[in-house]
Design a protein around this nucleic acid. Structure first.
Lengths: 143, 143
DNA sequence: CAAGACTATATCGTGCGCGATAAAAAAGAT
DNA sequence: ATCTTTTTTATCGCGCACGATATAGTCTTG
């Protein structure tokens, strides 16, 4: 493949990744907005629903985000009364994030969303699994 | 699969997409920054190197972006003297984007980047192709 | 040709992402 | 014990993304 071909948009792996990610976010957006959530906030909730009481950097490790993104995001979620932020009493550097009742309760409200999106979009479930496993592998190599 | 499992981060297709897209952007970022480019600006250049003289919405169709994102971005690229923005003389609503010599010249400078990234990351070329085709299919269904 | 509909771009506001840096607490070193 | 290093969170600035809206040019239709 010549350099010229390597620079064609259609031959880039980066662009479909970028485009697909934004398209999927757009798919979630109206459903999440109904619950006052943004997409990254939903990611944080997915993490906290699995394990509550994590520190900011614990969440950061899982979401691949750091404090410059997470601190303001978590503050907004605190303002929305979805979670509480409190310094650890054992290590004052750490901030422990705990879901409020409202944050916990949201779980059952949005539980239907993944399935709903899967059904509404005509996505082949086998191809989705294949895609996910290729993405996980890519992430493993880049993270 | 139960609702609870459907909400586990590890079972979401959306998250690896979001994470992989950001990881790949981070891979490009230092190489692009050396040429004063951001990742979305690079995407716009890829488009214009293929076909110059497009309108804002032509570029938007290809990049899946609209004027609220593109107008400021193109203005920054104009300030960087990579391109010129001029109203069409036939239809004054349209803005024609033309690369400057500097914008054209950048093509040969960044031509090595895709291959360089492919080689530096230990990405299997066959899996990359497979991934791209699955992403293209997904985009086709969602766009 | 005037009024309304439509199209193309621009503007505005909000929320990310993230590099760079700061500040404070904890851990380690001498 | 003091000094240095590391860890953890927060702050700042900039550039996207994008919904909502504005503005101006073009087209359509009576």
């Amino acid at each position: 493949m010549q350099n010229d071909d390597l620079l064609r948009l259609e031959n880039q792996l980066c662009f479909p990744l970028y485009a697909a990610s934004r398209l999927v976010t757009r798919l979630y957006q109206p459903l999440l907005e109904a619950h006052g959530l943004t997409y990254p906030q939903y990611i944080v909730l997915l993490i906290l629903w699995e394990q509550d009481g994590l520190t900011v950097s614990d969440i950061g490790d899982k979401a691949m985000l750091s404090s410059n993104t997470l601190t303001p995001l978590l503050k907004r979620m605190q303002t929305a009364e979805l979670l509480e932020r409190a310094r650890s009493e054992f290590d004052e550097r750490k901030v422990i994030i705990k879901l409020t009742d409202k944050g916990q309760a949201l779980k059952s409200e949005v539980a239907c969303i993944p399935l709903q999106l899967l059904e509404n979009s005509r996505i082949d479930i086998e191809k989705a699994k294949q895609l996910k496993s290729l993405l996980d592998e890519l992430i493993g190599k880049l993270a």
